[in-house]
Design a protein around this nucleic acid. Structure first.
Length: 293
DNA sequence: AACAGTACCAACCGCACTCTT
DNA sequence: TAAGAGTGCGGTTGGTACTGT
């Protein structure tokens, strides 16, 4: 359709959000609820485009967001789901209700891809290219349904990739995916936005951290690292600089790459946490992941 | 101490989809 | 039914902190 960008207007501010802007946005959303983002800049006086407001809310200010420190279980779940769903970060995020798709995407691109690469797999699971093309080929509402019908295919591909008993698969019944957690917090949950405000103010006011001033705590390393702690410390991977092709983004071709030996990955993925019906997996109603195979 | 390279993450961009008129 | 508006999503980038030399 070629619509013009929503932020084309002159005077629209870009870049990191300031705590003041965060406060304005949070208080507005607390009062009116998320949605009708178009009206947010108008009603709040924020010099941000609606899109930016929505993104800021969903990725940072929304109540219940957990930041930093992905647990091993979360890692495995992400890897598992990525293999099944491909780079459908929003879908993957729906299984980790306290993580944002952006967070998961970043974590995947900065940590897990490298981790899997060192383990002998690039994590580009069977779902990758196919899933992506599926989205392109079918309307969104349909790909969810299609996903259900294709889940057997994806499962089989993953199973084969992991060399796990490729023969005895159940018939391709179209069972539903494990139920994603409700994506949005209840109305009551908005109250806990105060927690987010407190958190950001805490980061804002923390003396001597980061460059302060112009850069909001959101964007600042200081606040992030304050929360994430050791997460970023996993600097064991001999990272490579961002390259045009191998940039943090995942190219489709890359995702569709061949699957090398999986022995290490396999054992890692299937060991204790994932393999034994760890039912309480972050409250995610995901059945024993082995059922996927 | 200064510099260069690397890692990380928040935010932007643009396409695709859904909803409304 | 078509067109436009609003929203969601995934890929990509810019900027800053960290680490090594």
């Amino acid at each position: 359709m070629g619509r013009p960008p929503c932020c084309e207007k002159a005077g629209v501010k870009k870049g990191p959000w300031t705590p003041e802007e965060d406060l304005v946005l949070v208080s507005y959303v607390q009062e009116h609820g998320p949605g009708n983002w178009r009206a947010v800049p108008t009603n709040t006086g924020l010099m941000r485009c609606s899109k930016s407001c929505r993104l800021r809310w969903t990725n940072y200010l929304r109540p219940g967001i957990k930041r930093g420190n992905f647990s091993v279980k979360e890692e495995k779940l992400i890897i598992h789901l990525q293999a099944l769903l491909g780079n459908r970060w929003a879908a993957i995020a729906s299984y980790l209700p306290d993580r944002t798709d952006n967070d998961i995407k970043n974590y995947w691109n900065t940590h897990l891809k490298k981790k899997l690469a060192t383990m002998g797999a690039d994590g580009a699971g069977a779902g990758g290219a196919e899933a992506r093309s599926g989205r392109a080929a079918a309307p969104k509402g349909q790909w969810e349904r299609r996903l259900q019908t294709d889940i057997h295919t994806a499962r089989q591909a993953l199973r084969e990739a992991l060399s796990l008993d490729p023969v005895k698969l159940p018939p391709a019944k179209t069972e539903p995916l494990p139920q994603p957690a409700p994506a949005q917090p209840s109305q009551a949950a908005y109250a806990s936005s105060a927690e987010n405000i407190a958190r950001l103010l805490e980061g804002w006011m923390r003396p001597g951290t980061g460059s302060a001033g112009t850069k909001a705590p959101s964007g600042s390393r200081s606040s992030a690292s304050a929360v994430s702690g050791g997460e970023g410390a996993s600097a064991s991977h001999s990272g490579t600089a961002r390259t045009p092709e191998g940039s943090t983004g995942t190219s489709k071709a890359e995702d569709a790459g061949p699957m090398p030996a999986f022995s290490m990955l396999e054992s890692w993925l299937l060991d204790d946490g994932m393999g034994h019906g760890d039912a309480g997996l972050m409250g995610v109603p995901l059945a024993d992941p082995c059922e996927f195979f």
